[in-house]
Design a protein around this nucleic acid. Structure first.
Lengths: 134, 134
DNA sequence: GTACTATGTTTCACAGATGGGACACGGCTT
DNA sequence: AAGCCGTGTCCCATCTGTGAAACATAGTAC
């Protein structure tokens, strides 16, 4: 018989919340920005990021979709081997194009600064992806 | 902005229900048997198999775990990057001197920040040009 | 026939997740 | 100073999934 104490929840919500928050701050989005983008309300996002309660299936789907991570990373349904999966990690999907979009959207940065930072990231990015490629 | 009419749910519950029912009948298990095995109550199982309502995250995890199928099979998250706003990228001459000038001229940046960023760019730039000259 | 059991369904009260709105705080601008 | 705007959090009414128990039905044994 499978016990079902509230403790052994099958989903690791805290990790999800941390991942969301990190990605959100990395891309300089507000909770309401993310809410518009994902369809999850700001209040719910706040709760999730702080690990309060468990999001329902739809919101998990929406958020993992936005994060572009497999849901299995969040729902520990160890189907095959007991890979003690770490947690939600998320590869930087920050392409130079995305970064530049964010920089240019930042009202606190002058166009010149935004441009310079874009350039900077592009240089670093090319370095990174080069070293990645074998 | 992502609309959120209750219709376009991110999870396809009906398929999950069908799969559960099929597998359960294949193995000649009653709802209560499955309930004992998975931790999901018989009543909830009945609802899921009949496609009534949407199971919460925990139950989805338990059932997909029992089915031994990846959850992504149930949660249809098109992980495509159709949300990336198109951006025109215009490269420009980004020497450390020019970048630094821009940063220092930006009155929205503290001198320390400008300096740090200049430094950062110089490091990345030197590495980049090093790898350029093979 | 009457019991009894097994199975799926439905009822019901409850716990909790959700989203809109209000709130407090901080940063800017005037 | 005051006002305004953005941000995160919290409150609260509403909605929804859940599980135990009651229910309906069918089959089986007596």
């Amino acid at each position: 018989m499978v016990k079902k104490s509230n403790k052994d929840s099958m989903i690791s919500t805290v990790e999800l919340g941390r991942a969301i928050k990190r990605r959100r701050e990395e891309t300089n989005m507000s909770l309401r920005d993310l809410a518009d983008k994902t369809g999850v309300s700001a209040s719910t996002l706040s709760r999730i990021e702080n690990g309060t309660g468990k999001p329902d299936a739809d919101n998990i789907a929406r958020l993992t979709n936005w994060l572009d991570v497999p849901i299995d990373r969040v729902m520990k349904g160890k189907s095959k081997k007991d890979t003690v999966e770490p947690v939600v990690y998320y590869p930087h999907e920050a392409t130079p194009e995305i970064v530049e979009a964010h920089l240019r959207a930042d009202k606190n940065l002058s166009p010149e600064t935004a441009k310079s930072l874009s350039e900077l990231f592009r240089v670093a990015y090319s370095q990174f992806s080069d070293s990645e490629k074998k």
